[in-house]
Every structure is written in C-alpha cells, then in structure tokens.
Design a protein around this nucleic acid. Structure first.
Lengths: 231, 231
DNA sequence: TCAGAATATGACTAATTAGTCATCATTTGA
DNA sequence: TCAAATGATGACTAATTAGTCATATTCTGA
C-alpha cells in the first residue's frame, strides 16, 4: 500500500510516497530521541531535508499526524506477525507457535527499534488522554490485535491443548507478557550500565531463544511444581 | 515521615508538611488530568491555593520535583505492600500470598487512582529518557521493588513450592502481570464505553477476587492442560 | 515554449509557560 | 513592642514552538 518502489505507480506517486517515508523515518528518529512532546517539528523537517511547511502538505495533522501514522505501521506489523504465526501455523502446536512468535517479536523489535520505542513511550499517555479520538484509536487497534490472536487461543482451548480459561483474558495476557519482555530488553539496552541487574539471567535479554523458552515454560507449564514430574 | 498530623512535631513543621501535601495532591490531580508536560504549574498552584512562587519554596526542582515526589510515594507504597504480603506471610503458601497481593494491589489502585495513573502515563517516557539522573532513578526503584519480592520467590523455589526458574526473571514477570492487569482495569474504567470488549470476562475488571483467581491460576497452574487432571 | 497548476518554503505570528525576584506579609524571640 | 528572619506572592522575562501563508519554485500538458 505504501511501498514507495511499487512500479505500478506513476513516478509522481512513487516520489510522493518516498517523501512521505523520509518524513516518517525522520519523525520516528526524533520522537525516539526526544519524546513526542519535546520533539520540534523543525528538527524533523531538517532531518528529512524538507521545509517545515512541506510536512503539512503530507500530514495535515502535523506532528500528531506523523505520530499516528507511525502507530499505524507498528500495529499493522504486529497484527501481521500474529497472523503469520498463528493463523498460518500449519500443524505446529499452539505452544510452538507462541514460542516462535516471541522469537520473531524480538527480531521485529531489533529491526524497528525507534518505532517500537515510540509506541512504548507515548502510547500509555495517549491511551489515558482526554481526547476521545485518541482513546478510540487505541481501543480499536488493541481490539484488532487481540482478535487476531483470540481465534487461535479459542481453537487451542477447544482442541484441549490449553486450559479452558476465558479466551480474551488469556489472549490479553499472552500479548502483554511478550510486550513486557521486549520493553525490559530495550530498557536494559538503553541503560548501558555494566550490571543488567533486573533479570539476573542475562541471556534472557540478549538471546531471543532463551527468552522465548523462559516465557513459554512459565506460561504453559506454570510456576507450581507439577506432581507428575516428581516421580 | 511525612505524616502531616504527627503530634511530635512543632506546629511550624506540621503546617509545612500539610502545605507540602496539599501541593502534592493538587499536582497529582492536574498531572493525571492533563499529563505532566501539559500541566501548567500555575494550575497546580491555583488548585492548591498557593502562589506559584511558593511551590518553589517546597520543591526546589519545581514541576519535576513534584512528579518525582509522587513517584517516591507510589514506589514506597508498592514496596511496603509487597513486604506486608510476602515477608510477613506467616504460614501462607507463596501462591496464597500472591493471590492476596493481587487483591490488595487492586484496592491500593482504587485508593490512589490519580497517583497510579501518573506512574502509568509518565514512567515509560522517563525510563527511556536521555537524562541519566532520571533513568537511574527508575533503575533503582525497580531494582528495590524486585528485591522486595525476590527473596520470597527464592524461598518458595527452595521449598519446592514453585519450579526452579531464574529467580529474578520470575519475580519480574510476577510484578509485570499484576501491573498489566491494573493498567487494563483502569483503561477500561477510563473508556466508559458500554462494551469493555478487551477482557471478555467483565468480572475480571471489576472484581478483584476474580482477577486474582485468574492470574494465580494462569501463572501457577499454567496454560497447558495437566495430564494428572485428565484421569 | 509557456501558462497555469501543483508543490515547496521558511519567516512570521501568536500562544504558552517555566522559573525569577522584588516586594509584601507574617512570625519569632529578645 | 519591634527588628530581623522567614515565608508568600504573582507580575514579569525569556525561551520555545506549532501552525500559517505569501512567495518562490517546479512540473505538466498543450
């Protein structure tokens, strides 16, 4: 849709999309560095090599339009990642799909670090904003994200692969714990202190496989010692 | 320490603390309503019925000083809540302590809604700030919070009550899932739409016991169907 | 080639607000 | 009582910056 190099478009349209992309990339970098509210639009314009006024030709809503266009990308990617792991899971177990989803989420974060950082830093504030347009935006995106995973959770419960807990509650928690782990990882990267003391097992922070193993074990096997293991 | 009505203090000191408290309460309300960066100090002063300059006599760092004094309170309360549930657990099981901790966390959130909202809305942005003083503040508070719970997790693992997963990783996840559930709850309260669609089981959002049951079951029993249940 | 459409530009305006400090009010203790 | 210290005040300053728009530039199709 926004692929700037799509050859089926006129040069005019291709160039328009390339400029839009340059503006979004510049905005993502400046927002990630200074935070949305402290990021001057002039700096975004300068980094993208445009005049400030030009940005308003591409994003009528100005700074906020840029931010929400970035959020659109992040949510689209996340929802696509969920679908590719769970809806097209083939004959993998739900547990294996989840494990793979965690690994791929880590990879995605590495590829789009700035974008993800903007979501982390700004979304909670906006979720609780007084502007109903903004809260509605997040309600819809979160709803769509949950629905993308909920059908797979429901199917797994019907197959008897997982316990019959409330589907959407389980779905919500699965998504949150992955998010939490990625936040934790990027936080420890941001604090480049020598001691990454919060998660003592340092490998969880650098090795996506180790992190996925931990999360999957915790969530699927549970914390409590299993009696059938003890004999 | 900051108890404004402590009779062992001089009137002068008691009054000073009452004024400080009034300023913090006003700040908490205005921050919660408008967000820290959009909250004018004049409005805080007006609501607390002081001149703006007076606030600087009580909080040298101005607006930011108010915010971090509020964070201090939130973290102190949270750490006290953890200690009262886990360190002074008596002969309750770790699982029962956790269950009770979830219930009391919900209660705490209801009592200090504004304060908690400020933590939700502002902490991520500040955690990832460029100012090393701010990042260090959160690193220390989060470290202290984890340590408050880690010893109980370790003891439970040694007793064989929970699986021997990495202590601090487990501790971190336990705290995060409780936090997530409270955020979810306050988000659905904030969105006073008729359909609280995200967690289909609506009771999880209003009934602290039901929420604690769900979280405890999910984390301790695990998602995967247990074989020893099936016969 | 060129008229006119489309697009880019950045100086400017208007609004906001954090923090200061000269001044005024109150309290203290001798 | 009153002089000195302590505390409160809010008008003011200085800095920031979002969004506008008159002008300049580039592109398009005839």
């Amino acid at each position: 849709m926004s692929d700037a190099s799509n050859p089926s478009l006129s040069r005019r349209e291709r160039e328009r999309r390339m400029r839009r992309r340059a503006m979004l990339d510049a905005a993502s970098a400046v927002f990630a560095e200074k935070g949305f509210e402290q990021a001057p639009l002039d700096e975004i314009a300068e980094r993208a090599e445009f005049g400030k006024g030009t940005i308003y030709n591409y994003f009528e809503e100005g700074k906020e339009g840029l931010l929400f266009a970035l959020f659109d990308e992040a949510y689209d990617d996340l929802q696509a990642l969920i679908r590719s792991n769970f809806e097209e899971a083939g004959d993998r177990s739900f547990r294996a799909s989840f494990h793979n989803f965690v690994v791929e989420s880590f990879t995605y974060y590495e590829e789009r670090e700035d974008l993800f950082l903007n979501l982390i830093k700004e979304s909670q504030r906006l979720c609780f904003s007084d502007d109903p347009e903004k809260t509605e935006y997040f309600r819809r995106q979160q709803q769509r994200t949950i629905e993308a995973l909920a059908s797979a959770v429901e199917a797994a419960a019907e197959e008897g692969d997982i316990s019959p807990l409330p589907t959407r509650s389980v779905t919500y928690m699965l998504l949150e714990v992955v998010y939490d782990l990625i936040v934790h990882r990027s936080l420890n990267e941001h604090r480049d202190t020598t001691d990454a003391t919060c998660l003592a097992d340092v490998s969880l922070l650098h090795d996506a496989e180790a992190a996925a193993d931990f999360l999957t074990t915790l969530l699927f096997d549970g914390l409590e010692t299993r009696r059938d293991d003890s004999m």
